[in-house]
Simulated assay, not measured.
Amino acid sequence: MSATDKVFAGSVPKLYDEYLVPLIFSVYADDLARRVAALSPSDLLEIAAGTGAVTRAVAALLPSDVRYVATDLNEPMLAVARQRQGDDPRMTWRQADALTLPFNDAAFDVVFCQFGAMFFPDRSKGYAETRRVLKPGGTYLFNVWDRIADNVFADEATATLGKMFPDDPPLFMARTPHGYHDKAVIKADLERAGFRDISIEILTATSRAPSAEYVAIAYCQGTPLRGEIEARDASRLEAATDAVAEAIRKRHGSGPVEAKIQALVITARP
Rank of each mutant, 00 (worst) to 15 (best):
S40F: 07
S40H: 05
S40P: 00
P41L: 04
P41K: 01
P41C: 04
S42C: 05
S42H: 13
S42Y: 03
S42M: 09
S42P: 00
D43S: 11
D43A: 12
D43L: 04
L44N: 09
L44A: 12
L44P: 09
L44C: 15
L45D: 08
L45I: 15
L45A: 15
L45H: 14
E46I: 09
E46L: 15
E46M: 12
I47Q: 03
I47W: 03
I47L: 14
A48H: 07
A48Y: 02
A48M: 11
A48V: 12
A48T: 13
A49I: 04
A49D: 09
A49Y: 00
G50E: 00
G50S: 04
G50H: 02
T51I: 08
T51S: 15
G52W: 01
G52T: 06
A53T: 11
A53M: 12
A53D: 08
V54R: 01
V54E: 05
T55W: 01
T55I: 02
T55D: 01
T55V: 08
R56P: 00
A57N: 03
A57H: 05
A57F: 03
A57P: 01
A57W: 02
A57K: 05
V58R: 06
V58T: 10
V58C: 06
A59H: 02
A59Q: 02
L61G: 01
L61C: 08
L61M: 14
L61S: 09
L61K: 13
L62W: 03
L62I: 06
L62H: 03
P63H: 00
S64I: 05
S64G: 12
S64E: 12
S64F: 06
S64V: 12
S64M: 07
D65I: 04
D65P: 01
D65G: 13
V66R: 08
R67Q: 10
R67E: 10
R67K: 13
Y68K: 07
Y68W: 11
Y68Q: 02
Y68L: 08
V69L: 11
V69A: 12
V69F: 06
A70M: 13
A70V: 11
A70N: 08
A70Y: 02
T71N: 11
T71G: 07
T71S: 10
T71R: 10
D72H: 07
D72M: 07
D72C: 08
L73C: 08
L73W: 14
N74W: 06
N74L: 06
N74G: 05
N74C: 11
E75A: 15
E75S: 10
E75Q: 15
P76T: 11
P76W: 13
P76S: 12
M77H: 05
M77S: 05
L78E: 05
L78K: 02
A79N: 11
A79C: 11
A79W: 08
A79T: 14
A79F: 13
V80R: 06
A81P: 06
A81S: 13
A81D: 10
A81V: 08
R82H: 12
R82C: 05
R82F: 07
Q83F: 07
Q83L: 10
Q83W: 09
Q83C: 01
R84K: 13
R84G: 04
R84M: 08
R84E: 10
Q85P: 05
Q85C: 14
Q85L: 15
G86M: 08
